[in-house]
Simulated assay, not measured.
Amino acid sequence: MITLTLLHPTKTIPLQHWTFKDESTIRIGRGIDNNVVLYSAVVSRHHLELRQKGLEWELESFGANGTFIEGKLITQTLAVDDGMVIRLASSGPKIQINLTSEETSSAPSTTQTQFQSQ
């Protein structure tokens, strides 16, 4: 199971959660055909993909404005670590990725707060 948490732009306050139990590919972007839709001018229609490979997850960025981890641009497919925070574009939305095994999982709370960056 994988949970994505949209974080407040300047704080580590969670704004919204998405939990995926059975999906092996999760698409994030501005386009409405993505699993996670983020309405931000700096987010591409199809910004990035998370793909499950066995027990592991990997991330691939397709966004014109890039995807960043700790201020560094992702330039290749990257293994996902539990708790990692990614930023879509250098000033865009921040998403925390949490990986949970089926045995230890419990349903996370869902917060539905609309986020739009300027």
Rank of each mutant, 00 (worst) to 15 (best):
M1W: 05
M1E: 10
M1C: 02
T3I: 13
T3M: 11
T5I: 12
T5C: 03
L7N: 06
H8R: 04
H8C: 08
P9N: 03
P9V: 06
T10L: 14
K11Y: 11
K11F: 06
I13G: 05
I13L: 09
P14I: 02
L15S: 02
L15V: 01
L15M: 11
Q16G: 00
H17V: 08
H17L: 07
W18N: 02
T19N: 09
F20L: 10
D22M: 03
D22A: 10
E23I: 01
E23A: 12
S24Y: 13
T25C: 08
T25Y: 05
I26S: 05
R27V: 03
R27F: 01
G29D: 01
R30D: 10
I32A: 12
I32W: 14
N34G: 00
N34S: 08
N34M: 07
N35C: 07
N35F: 03
V36R: 13
V37T: 12
V37H: 06
L38D: 06
Y39W: 14
Y39P: 00
Y39H: 15
A41Y: 12
V42N: 11
V43D: 03
V43W: 07
S44D: 10
H46K: 13
H46W: 02
H47T: 00
H47K: 08
L48D: 04
E49W: 07
E49P: 00
L50M: 14
R51I: 09
R51L: 01
Q52P: 07
Q52G: 02
Q52L: 09
Q52F: 07
K53V: 14
G54E: 12
L55A: 08
E56K: 04
E58C: 02
E58A: 03
L59H: 07
S61Y: 09
G66I: 05
T67F: 11
T67I: 13
T67A: 02
F68V: 01
I69Q: 08
I69F: 10
E70P: 02
G71C: 09
G71D: 04
K72S: 11
L73M: 11
Q76K: 08
Q76D: 14
Q76P: 00
T77I: 12
A79R: 04
V80E: 02
D81W: 09
D81I: 01
D81N: 12
G83E: 14
M84F: 04
M84Y: 11
V85A: 05
V85R: 10
I86W: 13
R87I: 04
R87F: 06
A89V: 03
S90T: 01
S90Y: 13
S91P: 00
S91I: 00
S91Y: 05
P93D: 12
I95A: 12
I95N: 12
Q96G: 03
Q96M: 14
I97H: 15
I97R: 15
I97V: 15
N98C: 10
N98Y: 10
S101Q: 14
S105E: 11
S106P: 09
A107C: 04
A107E: 15
P108C: 07
P108D: 04
S109R: 15
T110A: 14
T111A: 05
Q112S: 15
T113R: 14
T113G: 06
Q114D: 13
Q114E: 12
Q114C: 06
F115H: 13
F115M: 08
F115I: 11
F115E: 11
Q116M: 04
S117T: 05
